[in-house]
Amino acid sequence: MLILLCPYCGVKAEETELSPGGEAHLKRIGPDGTAEEFEAYLFARKNLKGVHFERWRHAYGCGKWFLAARDTHTMQVYGTYKAQTAHATDEIVANARQARPEWVPDWPQASEAVVG
């Protein structure tokens, strides 16, 4: 059974206590979005086989939404983090890269951001 640590209340929650909420970090499209943007936002999921960032709600616990990094192929959990976060923590990235050295995050890294 899948077990995720709720980053709010600290409970190790079993799958049956949780409701999944699909891919995380989606950018909401505003009223002037194009049909393509709405399609991408509503339907075109990454559906990755590997490192996946996703939303979960601690439904039968504290009730809060949080985020998890999970491997959809091996079911390994790389870590959980709070929902009000732009992307996963460095520690989670390190965990994921340890298991999958070929994987690279698809957001700008701190070092690159400083240089840029």
Partner: peptide, 13 residues
Amino acid sequence: DSYNAFTQRGSWH
């Protein structure tokens, strides 16, 4: 199962 996965197994519950 209600979340994405590629394990040809599925959740026990």
